[in-house]
Design a protein around this nucleic acid. Structure first.
Lengths: 205, 205
DNA sequence: GTCTGTTTAGACCAATCGGTTCAGTTTCGA
DNA sequence: TCGAAACTGAACCGATTGGTCTAAACAGAC
């Protein structure tokens, strides 16, 4: 994590500042969050804040980057390779679904989409630690499953992207656009079971 | 809620105002667009603008709503029911893909995602005239195809959602997060052909 | 030509913003 | 205990914002 940032001076209250910024940015977005508000929330003077970060954009970028990185950790670990494929897929999908529909993930997603025009690097950072990471892990698992003869896949990356897309169908989009508040368990099961069924129809051994 | 807006007075230069607002909002987003800029772009005085729209939010909402509605028309028409299923799916997917990856659609998507916190109705409007519309049209087509014995589908809506998700896999997400500028034709073919293959593996007759 | 409603340019307002400055206080290692 | 570095709080700045107001110019129907 500690790739030393190029021009960011760290001081005693560095963590406080970032924590405060995290809270306010997450709640208000980039434009919506005022520096005064952040400083107040962080329990720190504005002068201190500006002694760490040359300007607001860099503070935001730092927060967003940390957030994207931590997202990677919160995402599921795929370890239970002993399970049958069907159960394994179900387990991964449910785990991912829970994260993706959380208010936290939704807020990050929203902000990254919104600000990735202003900060192209931010969008890329998010993609790498979000969808790309998921794709990598799925690819790994699929490769092993293919080697064990449990799946038959020609293009592993495409298969991973497809499964990712299938399990997000309906619910994720509806959440993003406020059509859905909290998805019902049976609704989740319908989408995930459907995703697995379709996926295995093509790639099942 | 259809028809004439409740409190919006229309005057001679109404169309100009909306056109100017459309241009600036699309380019700058809600916060980024200043009312002065919009008025200048529309070739209209700020007083005139405010005589039509009580405030900026309502102007934005009006523009966004019109934009969502027109999006519906730009989206593909599904008429060629004579084609074989595989060609039909390919035709629809390519048509949708071209629209979805256009700068225009991307900008609208970005704005709707970003502002659907501030304007929940906006997100819903977008969903209805975007993903939902697509789902409806696909559902219609699938139903007929099932009736003709060309497809075997138990849950038509889920199948539509799945096809929509499959054809957007990889490319759409990468476009949103600035990983991809303009997708290569062979990349598009790979995703779409893969989507059709997977879809038909499950639902083909 | 007159009359009525629309439109105009721009001055104006209060609020807020990001960012700076500085004199004074706190912290903490040596 | 001393002194440098970190931190504070608030005043301050220039720019920009959404929104109002006014007095004059303009439009089209009669």
């Amino acid at each position: 994590m500690d790739g030393n940032a190029p021009e960011i001076k760290r001081g005693r209250k560095y963590a406080q500042v970032v924590a405060g910024a995290r809270k306010v940015f997450l709640a208000e977005g980039f434009e919506g969050a005022s520096v005064d508000h952040i400083a107040r929330e962080a329990g720190v003077s504005k002068a201190t804040l500006y002694s760490y970060f040359p300007d607001k954009r860099i503070l935001f970028f730092e927060v967003a980057k940390e957030e994207c990185a931590s997202q990677a950790d919160r995402a599921l670990q795929v370890d239970r390779t002993d399970l049958p494929v069907r159960e394994m897929l179900s387990h991964m999908a449910h785990s991912m679904m829970e994260f993706l529909t959380s208010d936290f993930a939704q807020r990050i997603f929203r902000i990254c989409v919104a600000e990735s025009d202003r900060f192209p690097e931010l969008g890329q950072e998010f993609y790498m630690s979000g969808p790309q990471l998921m794709e990598d892990r799925l690819s790994d698992y699929f490769s092993h499953a293919v080697a064990r003869g449990e799946l038959k896949i020609d293009d592993v990356r495409l298969a991973a992207q497809q499964f990712e897309a299938l399990m997000k169908a309906d619910i994720f989009v509806k959440k993003v656009f406020n059509i859905l508040d909290k998805p019902e368990p049976e609704q989740v099961d319908r989408v995930i079971d459907g995703a697995i069924e379709t996926f295995l129809a093509r790639y099942g051994a």
